[in-house]
Design a protein around this nucleic acid. Structure first.
Lengths: 198, 198
DNA sequence: TCTTAGATGTGACATACATCACACGAAATT
DNA sequence: AATTTCGTGTGATGTATGTCACATCTAAGA
């Protein structure tokens, strides 16, 4: 692990800064302060960033690549809780915030670069710069709204409609992940999804 | 509508203060500042607090009573997005935050008392008192985690299991709302729910 | 008090979906 | 290049659940 002040880091920082400034503009000094709370890491396809049962040290900001957040049930069946691609935050957030063991795993579907932020650094960011607390509030709020939207999609739509909604919302996702995982995310079997497409 | 500085208001304030202090302690002065951003309102059973298509002026903190947040689909079928009881926040949050028209309605299942906070007052609270921004961040975070938990419950459990989970999590809810609404919340027909119980 | 509307249970039937099984081509691994 | 694994499609079959229908009981309203 390394601080993000190297050549790659510059690009990563630009990415993070752009992301933050979609919500709140920050000065160079402020952004220096912000980026000092992140470390950079790279993972290969198939690597686990979080494994079920481990402590969850970080919240992750995805610079490039693609992740799946997976819950494995009692009968060893895997369920995709969410995907995370460029500019998304991901973690087992419950375990992260409550300092408990991970109940989900976070695995790379592609080679992936992330910025890592520990809980202490997250708190220091909120305490040290009110703008960041504002930023995280906005992220959490829209994260909540996104989940509510997904629940509503469950309540109101059948499998085919939910598939089409997902296709429309994230067309690129279909090119990047196998359909069996899309099926798992939608909560249907891969066979059913296959039949829906035809 | 009235400021919450009357007799009823004192009780309501106590309720709100207790709720806030579960997360962050506040001084009397701070709480005076906080409560000046809320107004109090009472509604009767069957009254609509938010109607689909209306502007959503407020976010609501429930002092007493019970609400349902409902989405009505194209075929006029109603879906319960959530219930809200004492100490819960509720609104069509998407419409509230984005100042768009309500796509959902919020209706009283019992006589209900709420504290109302407008978007401007919400922002003033966040700007004027960092503790409140922290408070709302925590609320939003755990709101998100709650939704994610509900999605996971959908992905991993069948109707009977989801019903039992709900029963365990909110036993009082069963005494207060008709089973047809529970069914709608769970995403099954009332007939199916009826057969599950037996 | 009488009447109506709401809540709940249950049977009959249709259907969406899961599961198991197998096939086949593409991609990854050796 | 050979072999294995992965991704995908498709048939057969069982099951969970939706929908329609009707009965009963309770609560609310006139």
């Amino acid at each position: 692990m390394q601080k993000i002040l190297n050549n790659f880091g510059v690009i990563m920082q630009a990415n993070l800064r752009e992301h933050i400034e979609k919500i709140i503009p920050v000065t160079d000094e402020e952004f220096d302060f912000i980026s000092s709370h992140f470390t950079s890491r790279k993972f290969k396809k198939h690597q686990f960033i979080i494994q079920e049962g481990d402590a969850v040290q970080y919240s992750y900001f995805v610079i490039s690549g693609l992740l799946k957040l997976v819950y494995t049930d009692a009968s060893a069946k895997q369920h995709i809780v969410s995907f995370a691609m460029e500019d998304w935050w991901e973690s087992d957030f419950y375990a992260f915030y409550t300092k408990t063991k991970a109940t989900m795993s976070l695995e790379c579907l592609e080679d992936t670069e992330v910025l890592c932020c520990s809980l202490e650094d997250y708190k220091k960011l909120c305490d040290g710069l009110q703008k960041m607390e504002r930023f995280f509030l906005e992220k959490a709020t829209f994260g909540f709204l996104g989940s509510q939207r997904r629940i509503l999609s469950w309540l109101t739509s059948n499998s085919k409609e939910r598939y089409e909604q997902l296709l429309k919302q994230y067309p690129m996702l279909m090119q990047r992940v196998p359909k069996s995982l899309i099926a798992s995310y939608l909560g249907v079997s891969r066979e059913t999804l296959s039949r829906l497409s035809s």
